[in-house]
């Protein structure tokens, strides 16, 4: 019974990992080689407006005479950078706070979690808009920071609860008896056991960051000079692409965002499945 179920699961985990990796690699390649891939320069408005997709313009042109495909390619870089950088910032803070709060009992844990619970009652989107409207500029750095610094709360909670349960296990006590310091127990003993949960969280915060960037750009909070999938969507919406049946302007940025996040989710899910499988296997033996 068990074998029957785990075998395809391992295979599906592998397939998911590979699929996700392929998707992300493609996006990474695109964002590294924007200039080579995009047929026209960024924000170049020299073409006729509202052109349908053709060989010259794979995804047509928009109301300003910009090549939508080129914009999409430039947008990839923004979304990729925001996703990865903001995701990393979030993860680092989330892990630090989560592990610390989970490892130390009593007041450290209570204080940290109180802060987390407190911050959780602020609507994050609203806070981001507030920060964005008061920051001197809303360039890429600000967006990354605003998203990265405000998204770690749930992650900290989940890491903490996992740390709590790891802490109960025998190996922590053993390490302590062996005279290891708190720091090295946290880093060498507990952290490796948290990898899957960290990975799962990393994936979800990265996805969240990409979507948050799109949302902020859509609300007109981002830097309008910056091309991102969110700004393309915002413009398509504002310029009534629908009246021209210009699906090539509305659908691709949404799909690109979805596909990109999908890639992350596949990797997260695939690796979780593999981890569970391995762990299950090792426990059985």
């Amino acid at each position: 019974m068990r074998n029957k179920r785990t075998l395809p699961r391992e295979r599906s985990g592998k397939a998911k990992l590979w699929g996700g990796a392929c998707i992300l690699l493609i996006f990474a390649a695109v964002s590294l080689a924007t200039a080579q891939i995009a047929p026209y320069p960024k924000n170049d408005m020299e073409f006729e407006v509202w052109l349908k997709p053709s060989a010259a313009h794979l995804l047509g042109t928009d109301s300003y005479g910009q090549d939508v495909f080129s914009q999409l390619v430039y947008g990839t870089r923004t979304s990729f950078l925001v996703g990865v950088l903001a995701g990393l910032i979030t993860t680092i803070i989330g892990v630090l706070v989560g592990v610390t709060a989970g490892f130390y009992r009593r007041w450290v844990s209570d204080a940290l979690m109180f802060v987390v619970d407190l911050l959780l009652i602020i609507p994050v989107m609203a806070l981001m808009i507030i920060l964005a409207s008061f920051l001197p500029s809303m360039g890429l750095t600000s967006i990354v920071l605003v998203i990265g610094l405000l998204s770690w709360l749930y992650m900290a909670r989940s890491i903490r609860s996992q740390t709590l349960s790891e802490r109960q296990r025998g190996y922590v006590e053993a390490a302590r008896v062996a005279g290891m310091s708190d720091l090295s127990i946290m880093l060498r003993e507990i952290l490796p056991n948290l990898y899957p949960i960290i990975l799962a969280n990393l994936v979800s915060v990265t996805t969240h960051a990409v979507l948050a960037e799109a949302g902020l750009s859509f609300l007109g909070i981002g830097d309008p000079k910056n091309v991102s999938w969110g700004t393309i969507l915002a413009l398509a919406h504002a310029n009534n692409a629908i009246m021209y049946d210009a699906w090539w302007w509305i659908v691709p940025p949404g799909l690109a965002t979805a596909l990109f996040c999908f890639g992350f989710i596949l990797i997260g899910n695939g690796s979780l499945e593999r981890f569970r499988h391995k762990r299950g296997a090792s426990q059985q033996t």
Partner: peptide, 14 residues
């Protein structure tokens, strides 16, 4: 998985 990856305002727009 897919819907989870879509910007949700996009759903509204569509």
């Amino acid at each position: 998985f897919f819907i989870n990856s879509v910007p949700y305002f996009w759903i509204g727009i569509l």
